[in-house]
Each structure stands twice: as structure tokens, then as C-alpha cells.
Computed example of a mutant assay.
Amino acid sequence: MSRAVVPVLLACAAGCGGGEATPPPRAAVTRPARPPKAQHDRAHAEPSDAEDDETSAWRPGRFMTQAVGRVTGAAQRFEKQSSFGFDEDASCVLGAFLENGREVSVTRPLRAGVRYVILGGGSDGVEDLDLAVESPEGKIVAADTMDDAQPVVELTPKAEGKYRIRLGNAKKGEGGGFGVVAIMREGGLSIPVNRFVESFGRTLSNAAQASHLVARRMKGSQGLAFHADGEWSFFGTILAEEENIQTGGLELEAPLSVILAGADRLADDVNLEVLDATTNEIAGRDEADDAAPVVALEPTKGHKYKVSVANVKARGTSLVTMLVLDLDVP
């Protein structure tokens, strides 16, 4: 791979402005009153009304947009009908590409005695998603394994700790699609739909432009695609000014990986840093004075990476989104 592509990609982006696994066990369903089904209108299903033709033409972005829009739209309608809001203790919206028969998971903190609702959903073609939550001891405490693509679970943890949320694509055979979860809790924060549009739309637009640049400059490449390999590729997090979040354990094994972040209009400066956790060396960093950082790197096969996103300067608590992309080679 030509190393000249990396600085070109960085300049462009700056100017732009799961392994094989068993689906969650078929445990008893724990289900709250189901939020209204996601409407497929543009306000919710496509949180990027202002996106340009280049963004619209980027196929991975279209399908991720469907999944993110449907789940966040359902979450916001549920929020209006209840005392629930988005959980700010860790990433509250996560997305991943799931081949049929595979799953992805995340371990995150949950508070004791607090009611949580976790909503799932997918892009077109995703027919059966399963959702499960495991306690710190590895016991399933809530699950929805019904034969549909809109799983919902409710739980009230008895003890504070790190709980594992598992999202599985239960459909058999070839194929796959994007799956998304939203984590909500009683007394959580309200996020207006326009802030999702701003944050996700801006990040997605930069990702699409970076993908088209790579496709033009790298012979034999189809651009960039969302990171898969049984790991999450989309993260949405509520961050106050000077607050940061770290995502570890990523195996970035493609010849080229690109990580981008973006935020809503309340954030003025967002920084991004990628650490090679195997060598404890900085693999890439973007500390420019803007809210659209990007890091491009050539990862070492077998190494683990940790990504840190910081809301350095803002005029209020912001919704920060991050995408992890890999080189798409047929």
C-alpha cells in the first residue's frame, strides 16, 4: 500500500470540515411496553437531510443511517412518553455490521436500582436480532430473543458493575446488515433529533468523502467500509466539556484504518487519539482546533488499539459520534 495515501487522506478529511459467535441464549423475554415502531420518514430514518450526493452514494453509509435513524427515532419517541432518557455513563448508541449468525458485545457500567431500557434495530434486510444483558458474573439478567428485528429489554440491576450487552443477528445463511442499540435509563438525558442529525450527519459526510478519496487514489480499492470482525464501528456518546471516553480492545487488522469523530453544534473542539495498546505507543492523534478530528493509520496485525475521544471545548454538553472504518478491498 502506498504510504502517500495517509497524509492525503488526512488533508482531505481535515478539509471536509463480529468474529464467529453464538447468538444470545434463548432466555425468557424481559420486555417493557414496546416503544412505537420506528417510522421510515426522513426525520428519523435518515439523519442527514443535508448530506451531499457523495454521501448518499456511499453504500455502507446508507445502511448504517437506516439502522441508526430507526433506533434513535424509536428511542426519542419512547423518551417523550416516559421518564427515560439516554444514558450518559458510557456510549449510549452503538452500531455494528453483523453477518448472519454473528454477534457483537460491549461491557459498560450500569447503576444499582436504576431502571434501564435497551432498544435494538437494524437496516433493511435485517430480519431477526437478539438482545441479551449479562451480569458481571456472566448470568443473563434480561433478554429478547423473539423472531423480529426490534428487540427490547428492560432491567433494574441489583448491584452496580460492568454489564455485558450482546446483540446478535440470528438469521441463518449468507448475508448480513447493520445492527444498532440505544441504552436508556430512567432520569437519563434528553437528546433532540436535530442534535443526532448534526453529529451523525457531519461524521458520516466526512467518512463518505474520505472513502471516495481512497477509492480514487488506491488502485484496486473500493474505498472504506465500516470496521467489522465482530466489533462495533459506530459510537454515540454524551460528553460534557473537558470530558473524554475511551474505547479499547479494537483489532484494526486492515491495511488501512480510518477513525473519525464529529459532534453537534455545541462542540467547538473535539480531539482524537489512537493508542497501540500492544506497544503502548501513540499510533495517531488529531488535536486540531475543530470538531471533526480524523486519524488514519496502518495498523499492525494482531495488535490491540485503544481510541480516546475528548470534548475539549464546548458551549454545553454535546453528542459526539465516532466511526471506525477499514479499507474495502474486494
Rank of each mutant, 00 (worst) to 15 (best):
P23E: 05
P109I: 07
I118T: 09
K158C: 04
S48A: 09
E160S: 14
A75K: 04
G177W: 11
A254W: 04
N100V: 05
D326N: 10
G262K: 04
A291L: 03
D41I: 03
P330I: 09
A170E: 08
Q209N: 02
G122W: 04
A28D: 11
V5E: 04
H212G: 00
A283Y: 02
R166Y: 00
M146P: 07
N280I: 05
G220F: 00
G188W: 01
S257A: 15
A14K: 15
D229L: 05
R202W: 00
L250I: 09
E51C: 12
D52N: 12
D49T: 04
V180F: 04
W58R: 10
F78A: 11
K301F: 15
L110S: 07
L275D: 08
N311H: 07
M1S: 12
T321C: 10
M218R: 07
D53G: 07
T247Q: 14
A288E: 11
D144L: 09
R3L: 10
P293S: 02
V197M: 03
T156M: 11
R59K: 13
L275T: 12
E242F: 05
S48K: 02
D268M: 11
K172D: 15
A57M: 08
C16G: 13
I140R: 11
G19D: 15
L252I: 11
S105R: 13
A283E: 01
S123V: 02
L110M: 15
M1I: 07
E160R: 13
F226L: 11
M322E: 01
F196Y: 13
R77F: 03
V295I: 10
E20N: 12
R62M: 14
Q39D: 05
R26Y: 05
D328N: 13
K139Q: 15
E99N: 14
H303Q: 09
L252S: 11
P330S: 14
Q66N: 13
G120D: 03
N244Y: 15
R315N: 15
L167A: 01
V133P: 02
G69E: 03
G176Q: 10
T22N: 14
G223N: 00
P7L: 13
H40I: 01
A57S: 14
S83F: 07
D290G: 01
G73R: 03
V274D: 05
L323W: 05
R102V: 06
Y163A: 07
T145Q: 12
L266M: 07
K171E: 15
D87S: 12
E251T: 13
L256H: 10
F86M: 06
M322W: 01
G17M: 09
D229G: 02
A21P: 04
K219L: 10
L155S: 07
L10D: 10
S48I: 00
R166M: 08
R164W: 04
F200Y: 04
V309P: 09
G249Q: 05
L260E: 12
A21Y: 06
N194P: 00
G69V: 01
A263Y: 01
Y163I: 07
A33N: 03
E231G: 12
A90F: 14
D144R: 08
G175T: 03
E99A: 14
K313D: 09
N100F: 06
V153L: 12
E20H: 10
P293A: 02
S190E: 13
T145P: 05
V214W: 00
S82N: 12
L252T: 12
P151A: 00
L213K: 00
E242A: 14
D124M: 08
